[in-house]
Simulated assay, not measured.
Amino acid sequence: MLRQVTRVLSRPLLSNRSCVRTFSTDVPATPSPDTAFIESWKKVIPNIEPPKTPSSFMGPRPPIPSTIPSKITVNFVLPYASELATKEVDMVIIPATTGQMGVLPGHVPTIAELKPGILSVHEGNDVTKYFLSSGFAFVHANSVADIVAVEAVPVDRIDPSLVQKGLAEFTQKLSSASTDLEKAEAQIGVDVHSALNSALSG
């Protein structure tokens, strides 16, 4: 039954080129209802509401300005909270896997994987620092940066003594690990606590 539903629903979507969406930082995303999908769904399963699709949650992107703005707009979110929403700042420095990456207004469109490290948000003379565990940063052509982290905490809330204790514990676990899983888990602990330690000492 599920295969039949999938086949029926996929036919009009694949044949109707108007349903193909362009995802680009150069084109503002304008959400519109997936009418072909919804109509097909209602024909096959009229008693169940159609599921939401990604376009249902997409908001329109600001247009690309003709000149480089003086500020970059930052959205910084976690799975359970929004730390910064449409915050205009001078610069952000993100801990990309390729190294520290400074993002200023007019930055080229970029997708960067994040590693454990410091996210610095610069607003005039004020600098707010967060320690990130991992995630991704999406820098758009319209000087908007979306930073999505798995976990984050302001640096000033980190207890240095607990970081040292955790680093010692995971280092001990790594040296005594006997299986690949134990080694991998211990190595992650060492990497995160080492990054925490560097963030606090730097």
Rank of each mutant, 00 (worst) to 15 (best):
P60L: 08
T73S: 12
I38D: 06
V27K: 04
G124P: 11
I45T: 10
I68L: 11
A85M: 06
T30G: 06
A81D: 15
L104R: 05
L119G: 07
G59D: 07
K87F: 15
G59R: 14
N75E: 05
F136K: 04
M101S: 08
K71S: 08
H122A: 09
F37Y: 14
V108I: 15
K52W: 03
L84G: 03
T73D: 00
L84F: 14
F136S: 04
P109H: 13
G135S: 12
G135Y: 06
K52C: 02
I64L: 10
G99V: 10
K43A: 13
N125Q: 13
V127D: 05
G117E: 08
D90N: 15
V89E: 08
P65R: 01
P95L: 12
S66M: 02
P65H: 01
K87W: 11
V27Y: 01
N75K: 09
P69G: 09
V77M: 09
V44H: 12
W41C: 08
I68W: 02
L132E: 07
I68M: 13
N75Q: 02
L119F: 06
I38N: 08
V121H: 03
A29G: 09
A36R: 03
Q100K: 15
P31S: 07
K42M: 02
A112L: 10
I93L: 09
V89W: 06
S133D: 12
G99P: 01
T67S: 15
P63D: 08
A137S: 14
T53H: 10
S133R: 14
W41S: 01
T128F: 06
S32V: 11
S56P: 01
V27W: 01
T98W: 09
S82K: 13
S133F: 10
D34C: 07
E123G: 00
V44S: 13
S32C: 06
Y80I: 10
V44E: 13
N47S: 15
P60D: 06
K43N: 10
K115F: 00
T67V: 13
F76I: 05
L104A: 02
K87E: 13
V92R: 02
V108R: 01
T110W: 00
F37H: 03
V103P: 01
F76P: 01
F76S: 03
W41K: 00
V27M: 07
K129Y: 01
P62A: 11
V127F: 02
G106P: 05
I118S: 04
L84P: 07
T86Y: 09
P60W: 00
P50G: 07
S134L: 02
N125C: 00
K87H: 13
Y80T: 13
V89H: 05
F136P: 00
P116I: 02
S120E: 14
T110C: 03
V77P: 03
M58G: 06
T73I: 10
I93S: 08
H122V: 14
T67D: 12
P31W: 05
Y130P: 06
S82F: 04
F37N: 02
S55I: 12
F138D: 11
S32A: 15
E39L: 08
P28G: 03
S134I: 02
E123S: 15
D126E: 12
W41D: 01
